[in-house]
Amino acid sequence: MIPIFDYILLIFLIVAAVISLKVKDLLSASMVFGIYSFLICLLWAEMGAVDVAFTEAAVGAGVSAVFLIATVYNTKRRSSD
């Protein structure tokens, strides 16, 4: 655990979460959600949970963003809110 790194990452995390919910373009929202997943992966590596960080890097930042993009491609890209 590295406290300063932890605080900075947590603040970034809130910012990324808010942006991914505020952006009206769903493709951008999916990408920002990928960034959110990557930040939280860094956070877990910092807290010593390396296995969880590894899983999150593969699953959250990789595959789940691809799933979201595949759905956005097959449906609509604009969102009303």
């Binding site: 296995d51 590894f54 593969a58 699953v59």
Partner: peptide, 14 residues
Amino acid sequence: SPGGGFQGGVIMGA
């Protein structure tokens, strides 16, 4: 080392 079936499986699927 860090890793295992879930991580390796996801990377292989990716």
